[in-house]
Nucleic acid binder design. Structure first.
Lengths: 340, 340
DNA sequence: ACTCAGCCTGAAACCGCTTCCCAAACGATA
DNA sequence: TATCGTTTGGGAAGCGGTTTCAGGCTGAGT
């Protein structure tokens, strides 16, 4: 069993109070005593018991990050940003995700049971957002919600302004690239991201004086494969001067480009293709993808930052931070990089 | 402040011992009393204080996962596997990674300070593996090491048999595909993965009676871009009947294929390209990549499984689990999928 | 010499929970 | 009725820290 504060005290020939004072530097301690205690600590390679400490301090130095899923580059980027920020602020990161089949209750209990997080940063799936409020409130710790809001609990939030990102993309296509016709390839119709991007697409078309064709809109499932298959069928009919495909994520854009290659439709010359998200693949295909950078890593970092701030200062008013999604112009839109 | 066990006891009109017994179901409690206590718990929405509990039980239900970095699909896959397994075994996952500039000491202290993990699963970078042993031993918790071994501490380990994966690939190229010449594009010469794969490449060539040309070997930095640039220069000279490129990871393989496309060298007809790792891009390029699947997610899961087992049973003999890397035949090797 | 700050140090309470040890209550048996 | 075993519930001792409070020692002021 590891050494306790009492062992240190005995070895240094002082009381445990003094040892505690040396460790926490909260009160005056004679310099020589201090040295003796520190020597004893080293000698026994003593480290304070985190439970006992937490019991008094009511703080663990751990913040939780709860995600709906761990698949995909998104979540790993969030985790990465969160981890960096957490360490910067002297906290550790507890990670959990919902499992298929979890309901809100059992999902949260996984973290809640071990009620030793000082705060929780969480992203909820569309299907769960409704039920979690009350349970969350019981947890009685600061909450930061990622890219959403939750009813029934006070919480900080960090959201990504996708609207504006999609708008920037459409503006770029219509104004800078001189698009004459734009096809839209979205994810599932029920997906809120798809919906947001679709709305911007439709409105922008109207504002630019272009006709909106219902048959120019497709709904797939966000995967490369689905887009590839679709492209094999239809890419020939899409091709044309100043014709564009706006895919709702990079994977689908990549699939479309691959399909176009297979059908000898040249991208971006005969058909330009743009994506969304700016995931790693965007740089790894030919031509490199014009897309919208969604700052997931920054979102993770910001969430943790808000959280730690709030832990330190519980009475602060709830805050909502909005992060910008930024247009990234590469070659797949064919405009050669002009941006304004 | 949240309700304590004493509040529950008072409300249920019993002693705290009884409440504790109800919670832990460790001793006989009259059924009616039990009901009363449970009602009180619900009423106060009481949850045991994790610190106090941990203090007695000397268990937090948290296991740590420490990685050298969080960039890239590898690590996110490890985390995913670990998370699933941890929840399965009723534990939570604390994640940390080394930061650029960390030395072994400060790196570990980030986790060590909050000495409340029940065990640690860790992957160490080449540069750190030397120094961590002693520090680790002081932590005095079960350790599982991923894909490596550490001197000076007793630990379980889970490793991936890359040797055998690379061998399977070379066998496939030489025997099934009838390769006449194979180029090797590795990562940095100092990287141990590259070294292992290179060795297999060289030996296999010899065993197959093919000449080994020093100038057929390239060392890049594992990135798409470096491989793309190289390919633009040299892909023409690589092309030839039954000529192959064995890239040490999928990203570089993707870069080479893109470069070949740009130079109108047809893959796999004029030049076949294979990769390693089986990351997501492998399925997202044309032609889909023949590669070696490295089971990162499974490695994470296995590590946590070993860890939890050992936490439950500290006296078990240290164990070393080896995971197989599996050949995945897609189209980029041009053999049409025959496997034996 | 006596008093009184001012600096250090130690004793002890407390955080919330588990668990050991006992006592009370109860029914069964002699 | 006395004795005994079996449930059932309570009291209290820790677990290893932090913090409050009181007091000892020192040196300066009178």
């Amino acid at each position: 069993m590891p050494a306790s504060i009492e062992d240190v005290a005995r070895l240094a020939n002082v009381s445990i109070s003094t040892v505690s004072r040396v460790i926490n530097r909260r009160a005056l301690v004679n310099e020589e005593t201090c040295k003796r205690v520190e020597a004893a600590i080293r000698e026994l390679s003593y480290r304070p018991n985190a439970f006992a400490r937490g019991l008094m301090l009511r703080k663990s130095g751990i913040v939780g990050l709860v995600l709906p899923d761990l698949h995909g580059e998104f979540y790993s980027e969030i985790i990465r940003g969160a981890n960096v920020q957490a360490r910067e602020m002297g906290h550790n990161l507890l990670i959990s995700s919902a499992m298929p089949g979890d309901d809100a209750e059992s999902w949260l209990s996984a973290i809640g049971q071990h009620a030793l997080v000082d705060g929780l940063a969480m992203m909820v799936s569309d299907t769960m957002v409704a039920g979690v409020g009350p349970t969350l409130a019981q947890l009685n710790v600061p909450i930061v919600v990622l890219d959403d809001e939750i009813e029934g609990v006070e919480h900080d939030a960090v959201i990504i302004d996708q609207q504006q990102g999609a708008q920037a993309m459409m503006d770029h296509l219509l104004k800078d690239c001189g698009a004459k016709r734009v096809f839209f390839v979205g994810g599932l119709e029920t997906n809120i991201d798809t919906q947001a991007r679709y709305k911007v697409y439709k409105d922008s078309l109207k504002n630019a004086g272009l006709k909106f064709h219902k048959e120019d809109v497709y709904h797939l499932d966000f995967t490369y494969e689905s887009a590839y298959r679709l492209a094999l069928d239809t890419v020939k009919s899409w091709a044309g001067p100043q014709h564009f495909v706006f895919a709702a994520n990079d994977e689908m854009a990549a699939g479309i480009i691959a399909g176009a290659n297979a059908k000898s439709v040249e991208v971006p010359k005969e058909l330009a293709v743009v994506g969304f998200d700016d995931t790693r693949v965007a740089q790894m295909i030919q031509p490199p993808l014009t897309t919208v950078h969604v700052p997931m890593s920054k979102m993770g970092a910001t969430a943790i930052e808000l959280l730690c701030r709030r832990i330190a200062e519980p009475e602060r008013a709830p805050q909502k931070v909005s992060l910008e999604a930024e247009l990234v112009v590469r070659s797949s839109c064919g405009c050669g990089g002009k941006k304004d």
